[in-house]
Amino acid sequence: MKKYLSFFRIRFIAGLQYRAAAWGGIATQFAWGFLTILMYRAFYETSADSFPMTFSALSTYIWLQQALLAMFMFWYFDNEIFEGITSGTIAYELCRPCNLYSMWFVKNMAVRLSRAVLRCVPILLVAAFLPDPYGISLPQSFEAGALFLISVILGFLVLVSLSMLVYISAFYTISTQGIRMLATSVMEFLCGAVIPIPFFPVVLQRVMYVLPFASVQSTPFLIYTGYINGIEALHSIGLQAIWLVLLMTAGILLMKCSLRKIVVQGG
């Protein structure tokens, strides 16, 4: 366990090194969130009745999304891992006394978290001081806040285990770029990054809630805003946990198979 922790630390510090990147990212995400909210405002002003939530809840949702973007953006992949697989330098990693799945998992978590930590505080701070209904508001209730914390951690883990599947797919194809794009487009759409899930037609919403993608960012953010509450929130969190177990098991099994293949073929 300790080795994973120190591994995490190294990656985390490395991620913190990029000062200019962090400021650039903060500026971008702030502008992005702002424009997105203005876009929804246009819809809100056109027909407030069709809006599935309050406008202030929507703003909160968007700011959470921007602040935690580095944690939840699917398209951020570690090229080192892909190159390691395609060029075969992965053999060196296999020599280390670590489980490869756990190592990559930790690596991914650290990179994403270090980026998110740098960026989320300034964005949340500014968003908190924006006038209502454009800013971020506090969680709907104390329980919502507590459940959000659990849910956001689960969501993050689900995301990392999903991206692990994409890394593992690199064992089977030379075209990782294609896979990445395909996976990203499907993922972004179904997890509510293009438009939040409550804005979809009702039939689609039902399907989307069951799929693992909703567990990533939609569930925690909707719990925070109070859109999902009470017993329903507990159900969603349960679903997140189930998906996490399933996805991690699938990843570990697939990894074993592909590593066996590599060892047999000699890379």
Partner: peptide, 9 residues
Amino acid sequence: ASFFMTAVG
């Protein structure tokens, strides 16, 4: 293969 996958993506 990569080319078409990327284009489809």
